[in-house]
Nucleic acid binder design. Structure first.
Lengths: 137, 137
DNA sequence: CTGAATCCGGTCCGATACTG
DNA sequence: CAGTATCGGACCGGATTCAG
């Protein structure tokens, strides 16, 4: 954790109100649809963990990297990567080499999702979930 | 959206480094376990949307409220509410009346998760997901 | 050798019907 | 109103197999 680079940008976003929209407007409706789609995506198993990997690390990640970091079946991982790529959160670049190499990169869009995971980290430092509970609450 | 009350508190959290921990410490390991458990929970279908409801609204929510707001099967909703309660993110209070009434409230812990959902809203205002894409990227 | 498609078994989720 | 019971279907995990 410790003072991540996102912090400044994050604060900017919070303080600037440039993104506010008239409620009930067309844009607001689009936002709701996007939000629904996003939550639906995040709701799928492992999606969050995968994005978390891209959000915390910074370089490109390969199939094998994720496979061992996330504890996920290869077929499911394949599906998630495809979904995330289709939706524009990841880019996929295949190099025609031997051994073959495929690199996945987070897009700008995905990187701007990073604060979410970073704050999740902050939260985790300050709280526990009950079953593992210690002295919290 | 528009300048949520969480913003100030959020900024405080970002600026104060009080939560930082030595990496590799015992606490850090606990954090990782908690994080894994949290992500695992958030990964389950509808969990995020449900928490989002509690994060945006402020009063208590009843079974029926959620059922119509979230578009979820009652058995699944029942499961989620139980999970979230067990884990200490929600409290459940049943009133012995007719008709019966059960109120769910977000705990402090859950409320401190609100910035996540709020920022998700900010993100949604600034981006789209590809299939619905407009002028983004 | 890596990334991913296929097949199958298990688990989770949705829809409806039903109970206190 | 707030759930539970049941069942069918979608989704996920694991092993194997395939392609480049």
């Amino acid at each position: 954790m410790v003072e991540p680079p996102q912090a400044e940008e994050f604060i900017e976003t919070i303080l600037s109100n440039e993104t506010a929209r008239p409620p009930g407007s067309e844009q607001a409706k689009d936002d709701n649809r996007t939000m629904a789609a996003l939550l639906n995506l995040l709701g799928k198993k492992h999606t969050i963990v995968i994005l978390h990997q891209f959000a915390t690390g910074d370089g490109p990640l390969r199939f094998g990297d994720l496979e061992e970091a996330v504890d996920i079946a290869p077929n499911t991982l394949s599906n998630r990567l495809e979904e995330l790529t289709e939706v524009g959160l990841l880019t996929r670049q295949a190099y025609d080499e031997i051994p073959p190499r495929v690199e996945y990169n987070a897009t700008e869009k995905a990187k701007e999702l990073a604060p979410v995971f970073w704050y999740l980290g902050v939260w985790t430092e300050r709280h526990d979930l009950e079953p593992i509970a210690t002295d919290d609450d």
